[in-house]
């Protein structure tokens, strides 16, 4: 039987090498492509009528849009509107990836459970936000690391702390999503394993496999919540970082 972490194994479906770099189309890339296709179907299908009074599907698309638009407006302000398409893409991408990863039986791959993917996204956000900060404020952006009104001897401690906390942003951002996904999927796998093991024992113990199964049902609900929540958290933290870059403190 597969171990609880085997679900995260990358399998090369189409091996590919360009200039010595391995860019094989893996099951992870397949999941990304599926995510892309699902989002495109969701949006094109939802907006095909462009109805004045929306149906359920169109309402769903509009709700996603307005939810993120409101979040960007509230946290990053008017200047942040420019970056709305990116935040919206980020949110939809992570949300769809997390939710597709929760579909039972198909046993899809959840690429947000890979630190390489989440860190790449977080690092991209971090670099982008830092560049926006310098582009907006020039070298004054370095003042972001200097807390207002602190005496000079405290600065010696506070400035390094501020810099470290700023540099650790991509790590915390990526690890939060990664760890949540890994933990959820591992737990589901472990309890799924219990169901199978107890069932294999037969007799009265087989009936006992109902308990871990019921737990899986509850856990699936929780994981759906986590899937949405983590996409939201990733998006809102990106907005907050963007706000810091645009307006400093």
């Amino acid at each position: 039987m597969a171990g609880p972490l085997d679900q995260f194994i990358i399998t090369n479906t189409v091996p590919l090498q360009v200039a010595g770099y391995d860019i094989s189309f893996t099951n992870s890339a397949g999941a990304m492509l599926a995510t892309l296709v699902v989002i495109m179907i969701f949006m094109i299908g939802g907006m095909r009528k462009k109805a004045l009074v929306p149906g359920r599907w169109q309402s769903g698309v509009e709700m996603c849009y307005e939810f993120i638009a409101k979040m960007v407006g509230d946290t990053a302000g008017v200047d942040g509107r420019k970056y709305f398409p990116f935040i919206f893409t980020l949110f939809m991408f992570i949300l769809a990836a997390n939710l597709i990863g929760m579909v039972p039986w198909l046993h899809p791959f959840t690429f947000t459970s890979h630190i390489a993917v989440t860190f790449a996204m977080a690092f991209f956000v971090f670099i982008g936000v830092t560049l926006i900060g310098f582009a907006t404020h020039g070298f004054k952006f370095l003042g972001f690391f200097v807390p207002h009104g602190a005496p000079w001897y405290l600065m010696l401690i506070l400035v390094p702390i501020e810099i470290i906390s700023y540099l650790s942003r991509p790590i915390s951002l990526s690890v939060r999503l990664f760890a949540n996904m890994v933990a959820g999927h591992t737990m589901l796998q472990v309890f799924g394993g219990f169901v199978v093991s107890l069932g294999a024992l037969g007799g009265v113990l087989a009936a006992g496999s109902v308990l871990p199964f019921a737990f899986i049902v509850a856990l699936t609900g929780l994981e759906l919540l986590v899937a949405c929540l983590q996409a939201y958290v990733f998006a809102i933290l990106t907005c907050l970082y963007l706000n810091d870059a645009l307006h400093m403190h």
């Binding site: 990358i10 391995d22 893996t26 690429f111 790449a120």
Partner: peptide
């Protein structure tokens, strides 16, 4: 399996 450096590059590229 996530910590195997071999899986980084193809995923980041396709991402």
């Amino acid at each position: 399996p996530q910590l195997d450096p071999a899986v980084f590059m193809p995923q980041i590229f396709w991402l």
